[in-house]
Design a binder for these strands. Structure first.
Lengths: 144, 144
DNA sequence: CGCAATAATTTCAAGCTTGAAATTTCATAC
DNA sequence: GTATGAAATTTCAAGCTTGAAATTATTGCG
């Protein structure tokens, strides 16, 4: 199992983790300093922005790859701040729909463009060709 | 700022985060189920394994890209379990050296090969050529 | 129908993580 | 040599995260 290919995959994973953590750190600081918010809050709002009609708690945690309990607490805090709203489902009383409030939508729209610019700045070293091959590889990694 | 290249970089980042989180989730489960440990504990032990002579707390948190306070608490727990040891520096009384104990070393060596195999399994879809271009791109992302 | 299995969500304890403040020690510039 | 600033570590409060247990609701099988 410790063939050269396996070792290379391990080195790649360590490198990948380093790049991701460094970028997350920069984005976290950006969100904190410039917008007084956090990465998990941003992630939830971005997911709700993409699905304007709202999602269930389970869908939300699947989208973000976090546990149900985690989604609950982040949504709790956003709801207390008036940025998202829970609505009980009409057809299934176990289910809850979450969506951005108008305030949440407004805040996110004020954030999104700057966030995109920050991400673009972080990865300014990547050309179109880099993005082509990287995207191709990432797609195949996800499937594996 | 919202040119097509910027949008592509953002999509790539979201995809990258997805791949990383999915892999982290699998590794976390692997460590929990098969070795009764966690990702941050593993990360610390792996860093100390690479630097067998020991590192300072500051070096450790720089290596892992975590805050000093975080390194302190993870090392606290590992020390309580007898897997790492703190030693005061002889030349600078502010500084502390951390290193694996013999027990820590033995445990990590029992873990390392299986961990590598698991990582390799997770990224089995990547060929040598993929690793070439991916490594090249990741190197340039880190510098940016 | 009745009930067992499944599903959606929340709750909970434990651990992780950050960023800021506090503590102790060292370096250096007068 | 003394004070001022910088550095290494820990502490702390707050928030994040997990995984398991608890709760409530639905489904489907007999």
């Amino acid at each position: 199992m410790s063939d050269p290919l396996s070792k290379r995959r391990l080195k790649m994973w360590i490198r990948l983790l380093g790049v991701t953590r460094a970028a997350e750190g920069e984005l976290r600081e950006f969100l904190r300093v410039r917008h007084d918010t956090t990465l998990p809050r941003f992630d939830v709002m971005a997911a709700l922005y993409r699905r304007r009609e709202g999602v269930t708690m389970s869908e939300l945690s699947r989208m973000l790859l976090v546990s149900n309990g985690n989604a609950t607490t982040v949504v709790d805090r956003l709801e207390k701040d008036g940025l998202v709203r829970r609505t009980p489902s009409e057809t299934d009383r176990r289910t809850v729909h979450v969506a951005l409030t108008p305030e949440g939508l407004a805040q996110f729209e004020g954030l999104a463009a700057e966030h995109e610019a920050e991400v673009s700045r972080l990865f300014a070293g990547l050309s179109e060709a880099d993005l082509d091959s990287l995207t191709d590889i990432l797609k195949r990694m996800r499937g594996a």
